[in-house]
Design a protein around this nucleic acid. Structure first.
Lengths: 210, 210
DNA sequence: GCTATACAATTGTCCGACAATATTCAGGTT
DNA sequence: AACCTGAATATTGTCGGACAATTGTATAGC
């Protein structure tokens, strides 16, 4: 049951792919009822689309979907960065954060799509965990950003920008300096630039309808 | 099936109340599988707590839960207010928004808990709809604010403040004037004051743990 | 080539069953 | 009387099968 959730979130499935209940029952060795419960939850989290009598599809994001998600994520990540900066001194926060940052930065030389995607997701997860706002951790746009990264993982377009890693470093520097305002600013700037990069990509890379 | 979701969200159930699957099947005349699917979805939305082998409880918020929710909601509602201000001129937005505002303000004289709660929820829903960011509409903190209002509906404490309606009017004025920055400011101020009012309430009004 | 019917695949929902676990309560002990 | 122990009970987690409703597809007819 937990395996099913992980399986769907881990990126084993491609955006747009149809998920057939019977296949999932066979793949994970659980009953159809269990599969359906998991699908309902994933739909509520916005990771899959559930169309009546037609089934479940891994959500495929249009340009406007991504725009909307990024606008919301900007607000939430900004909050998360500020909170993390305030609490970076507590417990083992500094060590964990530095480790997560390091995992992202090591891809500066060899941007391997899939692993970088994972590292970025972990970076934000760590940031939010350190911030300590439990609601923030459960917020759907955080999950949907992962979806967004998945959709672009083949093409390292967005992350390949030379500025990309510099922006991460700027965020991290403020967080590590316990500078909440600065962390918010750095995060906001990073995400606005990400949005700008997105706007320059051709329509062909996005799902239709939006 | 849809009736079940509405029933749980409409406030027929009290925060902390335990939801027993067998009772729900009887009440709504659907099978246990259907009930469980609905519960899974509600749990993903943060409206109920799902404890293994112990069942589903209407989520009861502790002081720290509310603090976290409000912090996230502040960011999202601020975004929503700004977007609404930008689009207040489109379609029938102005009329719908004015109607929603009116429904809230009519409780200035007789603050009847339950109906005011509903009106406030509709006010925010309208705001977000006008803003046009689809992700924002699905964001969980919006739903959880409804939960928060439910928990305080008996005691009109938070909403009873004399300043309460003035703050709503300030938000609405900026939105109606297409002043996005002003709308963001007014919303942020309203929610920070709400948080301050919350801090002054005694522990006894909150759920334990946090 | 296009339309319409028939067929196949899949989902939505129901029912009954059983193991796993949590809660309750009776009984005995200190 | 208060406290532990363990059986009885209630509820959840999962299974399997079943059937109607709906969608997608292929075949037959014009």
């Amino acid at each position: 049951m937990a395996a099913l959730n992980d399986g769907i979130q881990s990126g084993r499935y491609v955006p747009g792919q149809r998920l057939i209940e019977a296949d999932l029952t066979a793949e994970y060795g659980v009953s159809r009822g269990t599969v359906r419960e998991a699908l309902k939850r994933l739909a509520a989290e916005g990771l899959i689309d559930l169309v009546a009598h037609r089934g479940a599809y891994v959500r495929s994001l249009s340009r406007s979907d991504m725009h909307d998600i990024l606008a919301v994520f900007e607000r939430l990540a900004t909050l998360g960065a500020g909170l993390a900066a305030e609490r970076i001194g507590e417990a083992d926060h500094r060590a964990r954060f530095e480790a997560a940052l390091e995992r992202v930065l090591q891809f500066r030389t060899h941007p391997e799509g899939m692993a970088l995607m994972q590292a970025r997701t972990e970076f934000y997860d760590t940031l939010v965990q350190i911030g300590g706002n439990l609601e923030l951790s459960h917020s759907t746009p955080l999950l949907q950003m992962h979806l967004m990264r998945m959709q672009f993982r083949q093409m390292t377009l967005v992350a390949s920008s030379r500025h990309f890693f510099e922006e991460y470093e700027a965020i991290a520097a403020s967080v590590l300096a316990s500078d909440a305002r600065g962390a918010e600013r750095a995060m906001r700037r990073h995400l606005r630039r990400t949005r700008a990069r997105l706007d320059r990509l051709p329509d062909s890379l996005f799902a239709a309808g939006g």
